[in-house]
C-alpha cells in the first residue's frame, strides 16, 4: 500500500507486480528498481549465493550509499513481518478500496497470515 501511496504522492507510474518478483515491473518508475527488488528478495530468502550476487549488482549499479540504505530497509522488514505474525496483527485498513484492490492484484489473501485480518467467510 505504501508503494502505491508514495507513487501517487510523486505522480509516478509504478507496477506493483515488482513486489511479487517481476524485475521489469520493479524497474517501472523506480530507479534501480530491479536491483533493489533482487537484493530484497535474496535477503528475505536468506540464500547466501543470491545475496552476494544481488549485493554486487546493486553496488555496481547504484553505489555504496544506496546499498547501505537498502540493507537497512530490508533488515527492518525482516523484523516487521515477524512482529506482525508473532502477535497476530490484523491489517489496519481493510475497508479501504485501494487496499482491497492491491490485495486482489497481488493475490495476498492466499497468505496464511491473512487469517488475522479476514472474516472466516472471506479469502
Amino acid at each position: 500500500m505504501m508503494l502505491r501511496t508514495s507513487a501517487m504522492t510523486t505522480d509516478t507510474e509504478v507496477d506493483l507486480q515488482g513486489v511479487v518478483g517481476n524485475k521489469t515491473s520493479a524497474a517501472t518508475g523506480i530507479a534501480y528498481g530491479a536491483e533493489l527488488m533482487s537484493f530484497a528478495e535474496s535477503i528475505a530468502l536468506r540464500d547466501e549465493h543470491s545475496i552476494v550476487e544481488s549485493r554486487d549488482g546493486l553496488l555496481a549499479a547504484a553505489g555504496p550509499a544506496v546499498l547501505v540504505d537498502a540493507a537497512g530497509v530490508a533488515a527492518n522488514f525482516q523484523r516487521m513481518v515477524r512482529i506482525a505474525d508473532s502477535i497476530g496483527l490484523p491489517f489496519d485498513y481493510m475497508d479501504s478500496t485501494m487496499v482491497q484492490e492491491i490485495q486482489q492484484e497481488l493475490g495476498l489473501k492466499r497468505f496464511a497470515s491473512s487469517r488475522h485480518s479476514l472474516h472466516p467467510d472471506e479469502g
Binding site: V20, L36, A40, E41, I43, A44
Partner: peptide, 9 residues
Amino acid sequence: LIAGRVSAV
C-alpha cells in the same frame, strides 16, 4: 519496493 518484496517473500 524493498519492504513489499521482503514482506511478500
